[in-house]
Amino acid sequence: MSEKFDTSQLPRELASVFDELVARDPHQGEFHQAVFEVLSWPAFPSLGELVDYQVPWL
C-alpha cells in the first residue's frame, strides 16, 4: 500500500491497481494524487460491479 495515500477505503481491486501504479512510477507524486482522487470519488464505480468490463491488468 502507498504510504501517502490511505487505500483502505477503496475497493480491493482499485487499491491493487493504485498500489501497482505507485510501485511502477514512484516519483510521480502529482499523478498519484490525481489518480487517487478519481478512484476515491464516490461516483466512480467499483470494478466488481462492472461485470461486463474486462480489465487486462487485474
Rank of each mutant, 00 (worst) to 15 (best):
W41N: 09
V35P: 01
L39S: 03
A43T: 04
A23G: 09
V22Q: 03
H32R: 03
L39G: 06
L58S: 04
W57F: 12
Q33N: 06
P11M: 09
F44W: 15
L50C: 12
L58M: 14
A15R: 06
D19V: 03
P42C: 14
R12D: 07
D52M: 07
S16P: 01
S2D: 13
R12A: 09
D25A: 07
S46P: 03
Q54G: 00
V22S: 02
Q9F: 00
V55C: 10
F36S: 03
E30L: 09
W41L: 06
P11K: 01
P26A: 00
Q33M: 07
E49G: 15
A23W: 05
G48M: 05
G48Y: 05
G48L: 09
L50I: 02
S46A: 14
A43V: 08
Q9G: 07
W57T: 07
L58G: 03
S40P: 03
S16D: 10
L14G: 02
H32Y: 03
Q54H: 12
P26E: 01
P26I: 05
A15T: 05
F36N: 05
H32N: 06
E30Y: 07
V38F: 15
W57H: 08
S46D: 07
L21H: 13
S40F: 00
R24S: 11
A43G: 02
G48F: 02
L10W: 04
E37S: 10
E49C: 13
E30M: 09
F5Y: 15
A23C: 07
L14K: 06
F36I: 04
S16Q: 09
V38W: 09
L39A: 13
E30W: 01
H27P: 02
D25H: 15
D25Y: 15
S8F: 02
P11R: 06
S2F: 01
Y53A: 00
V17C: 02
G29L: 07
V35A: 13
P42T: 09
Q9K: 14
S16L: 08
V38M: 15
P56Q: 07
A15M: 02
L21I: 11
L10C: 12
P42G: 10
